[in-house]
């Protein structure tokens, strides 16, 4: 429904995004995180207006209508870097595979050791992949899909907040490995962060995100089995 609230939510989100994005483009400071800051401003505004998330949801649906088109557009940077991708196929596959496995196993193990319910552990496994994939995986392994979506968003936000900074800390300066890492660790938000750096990092991140999604589904039965043994 196109209510006044919905229109205000769309307009407000656009305004907040454009303001923070122009601040980011001007200062390029790592602490100006477009996703994190914009979301924080909007959440505070919603809480101040006493609006629940359900009031914001129609606006979210309108604004994310083009998300599919935007994700599919990632084929373009992939195509521009196709020679690079083919030549380093082995390095890409090994590092992304190892990363996807580490992410699943460490998350599942820590939640299990922390004494959390089993369905929480099953929901956190897919936290490194994009939302439609994570939700599907969670329901296959008796997790909670909405919880899985929350973990995905939390991981993505963490990655876009601290990913580039962490890579600076371990002195990784190559767009190749920076892109692969960001895409594997924090899916779409990592790709967006990598695209802010340069096109090569963006292309590698897009590829890493796709591979991590596929490999996470492939590894899932093994990781679930391992966690059951260790429990």
């Amino acid at each position: 429904m196109w209510t006044v609230t919905t229109l205000l939510c769309v307009a407000g989100t656009l305004l907040v995004y454009l303001t923070i994005n122009s601040l980011y483009l001007r200062y390029k400071h790592p602490l100006i995180n477009v996703v994190g800051l914009s979301a924080a401003v909007i959440i505070i505004a919603l809480l101040l207006c006493d609006l629940p998330y359900t009031a914001y949801e129609p606006a979210k649906d309108i604004m994310t209508a083009l998300m599919g088109a935007a994700t599919v557009s990632l084929a373009l940077p992939l195509y521009r870097f196709r020679k690079l991708l083919l030549r380093d196929a082995a390095a890409i596959l090994c590092s992304v595979g190892a990363g996807a496995f580490t992410a699943m196993f460490s998350a599942g193990l820590m939640v299990q050791m922390g004494g959390l319910p089993r369905e929480v552990a099953m929901s956190i496994l897919s936290k490194g992949v994009s939302i439609p994939f994570a939700v599907q995986l969670a329901s296959i392994y008796d997790g909670v899909p909405s919880l899985a979506a929350a973990f995905v968003v939390a991981t993505g936000t963490l990655g876009s907040l601290l990913g580039a900074w962490s890579l600076d800390c371990i002195r990784d300066t190559a767009p190749f490995s920076r892109g692969l890492t960001l895409g594997t660790v924090s899916h779409g938000q990592g790709v967006a962060a990598a695209l802010q750096e340069n096109e090569e990092a963006g292309a590698m991140a897009g590829l890493a995100m796709i591979l991590a999604g596929i490999l996470t589904a492939v590894f899932a039965p093994g990781v679930v089995w391992l966690l059951r043994i260790l429990a």
């Binding site: 190892a98 990363g99 998350a107 922390g114 936290k127 490194g128 490995s177 660790v185 924090s186 890493a208």
Partner: peptide, 26 residues
């Protein structure tokens, strides 16, 4: 804290793994 720790560690570990492996293999 358990969730926060799990999310942070399971983001930091693969970050190290992917970055090191990608550079070493390439």
């Amino acid at each position: 804290w358990a969730l926060l720790a799990a999310i942070v560690v399971s983001a930091a570990l693969p970050l190290l793994v992917v970055s090191k492996l990608a550079r070493a293999l390439r």
